[in-house]
Simulated assay, not measured.
Amino acid sequence: MSLASLAPRTTPTPPAAAAPAAPAPRLRAVPEGTEARGFVLYVGLDEAKAAAAGIDLGRLVVELKKLTVELAPGAETHAAVALAPAGAGGRDVEVVRLALQDPSALARYRRADEPAVEAKAEGVVIDISRKRVLLDGETAALTYKEFELLQYLVLREGRTIERAELIASLWAEAVEGDDDVPNERTIDVHVRRLRSKLGGYEDIVRTVRGAGYRFDRHADVSIRYASTPSPDFF
């Protein structure tokens, strides 16, 4: 009998099961049922401060875009320079957020006006937070697309929006050739329908001849901003 046959038999230990992979951490600001598709980074820095640091804004933008692509080659980037009146007070980054019409910054800026809005029955209330328009206290029967069109102009107050931009932004998901996709001429029809529902306040949507459309605020117009960023900014 061999020595091997006298050795005690041991049951082989099965390999340890691999621990389940930990789920990727969720961004705190992303609610359940949604996914992050990117981010916005506001940089408060005027040309004088940039020059004092030995750089200019254009080069800083290029370097940040380059770094983003190095860290995440699949990333797409877009930069916009915020313009504000010379000598505008406040922290640089807050001036930038207001200049670029960040809805959450606008909401804080206008919060003091909210009680007056609630007490006001006459005039127009454009409620971005609830997606509705009140005309002298009554809800206007706007369609979803009509409200989107008005909201797009309101959030870009003071800017003339070309018809081509409205089509590209508000009908971006439509298939070319689809009957629901307007051309630059039929945009006028959509605007005319919106104005008809605004009644006596139709002139808040102004035609800029040869250019496009612009939202004109009057003393009898109030706007309630949402506390979270509007989707059409992303």
Rank of each mutant, 00 (worst) to 15 (best):
Y225L: 08
E148A: 05
A105N: 02
I126F: 03
A172G: 05
Q151P: 07
R97N: 05
R97S: 00
R110V: 14
A164I: 12
R132Q: 12
R110Y: 08
A164K: 15
T143H: 09
V208W: 13
S222K: 06
W171F: 07
A105K: 07
A219Y: 04
K120N: 13
E162P: 03
V191T: 09
Y201N: 13
R209K: 09
A168Y: 02
D180F: 08
G90M: 14
A168R: 14
L134I: 09
T143N: 10
E138F: 09
D92H: 14
P182L: 06
A112T: 03
R111T: 13
S104W: 00
H190E: 13
V221G: 04
L194N: 01
Y152M: 14
D180P: 02
R91E: 15
A107N: 08
V175R: 04
Y201T: 12
G212S: 02
E122L: 13
V208M: 08
R185L: 03
E114G: 02
R206Y: 10
G137K: 12
K120T: 11
G177S: 04
A211I: 12
D102M: 11
R195N: 02
V133D: 00
Y225V: 11
R195F: 06
V133Q: 02
E94K: 05
V133K: 01
R195H: 00
R156S: 03
W171Y: 13
V133M: 03
K197T: 00
I187M: 10
T139S: 06
E146Y: 06
A112D: 13
D127V: 04
L198W: 04
T207Y: 04
I167S: 14
K120G: 10
V133Y: 07
V133F: 03
L170M: 09
D216F: 12
D113V: 14
E157N: 00
G177M: 09
A219L: 09
T143W: 01
V181Q: 10
D136I: 13
R111H: 08
H190R: 10
E146C: 02
R192P: 00
T186L: 13
R130N: 14
D203K: 01
A141I: 07
T139C: 00
L155Y: 11
R206E: 15
R108A: 07
D216C: 11
E176D: 12
E184C: 02
R108K: 13
W171V: 15
I128W: 04
L170D: 01
G123W: 03
R209H: 05
E157I: 03
A105T: 05
G200A: 04
V189F: 14
E94A: 09
R192Y: 04
R193S: 08
D216Q: 13
R217C: 05
T186Y: 02
I161D: 14
G210M: 15
E176G: 01
S129W: 14
D188E: 11
D92K: 14
L134W: 02
A116L: 15
V93N: 01
D92Q: 12
I161A: 11
L166V: 00
A112F: 05
